[in-house]
């Protein structure tokens, strides 16, 4: 009976206050979309880092079938050439700059490639033979990249030496800046959302002050009196959060998956499914901000 009563109260409150409720939904929708966009950028950065980014700084790619580099004139790197590179890496002249290094065989490379590009159609057209084997080096000081590069570029069987960080770091700094902007916009919008929810609850409490006055007098508990108001705000915020999650999914599905991944087939993009991990966080955030702001409002405007 009490639950039914609370639900009926929520229904009538939402209906009476429809325009305010719609604006709460829209404001939470926009603010949480920005929060989610920041989250999505971070997911995308992680995706692009791939398997090695956080573990090593420098990669020495060995020649493979299709290599055109000058060092690869003799064809794919032979096991001896590979051993030579490994020996050189272990020699004292080089080892002083190196923390440790790992060898990535063609099969390992294929495995990591498949993981990183799992959302891209390119994965189907690549075979392990096409991917170069490589040495991945964790530097004591990443700034000393030049030394490694000079030492190994001319080695037989080495296609190229790459400083991975240099390649990606600029892109990542742009993306990080973009997430920061998204978070700041989200912050402003969240303040808007909190104030708007507070105003909505206040209006709602005012328009139902007769009912709540009588409820107080006949001894209704605080929960029965306040819950409909709190849930009103929470429901509106949850609808906004669901819309925001849906928008992020749509962006990932249609823009990243449908458009960008065709334009840039060699970039690893997040899948639409991955954005759904953001949904619970967004809904939780919506519930939290609606709940807190309505509780604070009710404490002031709905005495029990």
């Amino acid at each position: 009976m009490r639950l039914q009563f609370v639900l009926a109260e929520i229904g009538s409150g939402l209906r009476r206050n429809l325009s305010m409720v719609v604006s709460v939904i829209l404001v939470t929708f926009v603010s949480l979309t920005f929060v989610g966009a920041a989250g999505m950028l971070q997911l995308q950065i992680n995706q692009m880092k791939g398997y090695w980014y956080d573990k090593v700084q420098v990669a020495i790619f060995l020649c493979s079938d299709g290599s055109t580099a000058t060092g690869c004139a003799t064809g794919p790197a032979t096991p001896e050439q590979q051993d030579n590179v490994a020996k050189l890496l272990a020699s004292p002249a080089v080892a002083q700059y190196v923390n440790d290094f790992q060898f990535e065989s063609k099969d390992d490379a294929y495995k990591h490639f498949k993981e990183q590009f799992s959302n891209s159609p390119i994965v189907d057209s690549v075979t392990p033979d096409q991917l170069p084997a490589s040495f991945r080096i964790n530097m004591k000081d990443p700034e000393k990249y030049q030394i490694i590069s000079e030492t190994f570029s001319s080695q037989a069987g080495v296609e190229t030496v790459i400083d991975q960080r240099q390649l990606l770091e600029r892109l990542f700094s742009v993306m990080n800046a973009a997430s920061l902007v998204a978070v700041s916009v989200a912050g402003v919008m969240i303040v808007c959302a909190i104030l708007l929810i507070a105003t909505t609850i206040r209006l709602s409490a005012f328009s139902r002050r007769r009912e709540t006055g009588i409820m107080r007098l006949v001894g209704a508990s605080k929960i029965v009196i306040q819950l409909p108001f709190i849930l009103e705000g929470v429901i509106a915020a949850v609808i906004g959060a669901v819309l925001a999650s849906g928008t992020l999914w749509a962006v990932a599905h249609f823009f990243l998956g449908g458009y960008l991944s065709k334009q840039y087939p060699d970039t690893a993009f997040i899948s639409a499914g991955q954005t759904l991990v953001l949904a619970p966080a967004l809904i939780g955030l919506g519930v939290l901000l609606a709940g807190v702001s309505s509780l604070l409002t009710l404490r002031r405007y709905l005495r029990v």
């Binding site: 009976m1 009490r2 009563f5 009912e211 009588i214 409820m215 006949v218 001894g219 209704a220 508990s221 029965v224 009196i225």
Partner: peptide
């Protein structure tokens, strides 16, 4: 209303 808000059952009401 006075009975609903303190959780009395429908049949009692």
């Amino acid at each position: 209303f006075a009975m609903q808000v303190i959780g009395k059952s429908r049949s009692v009401i």
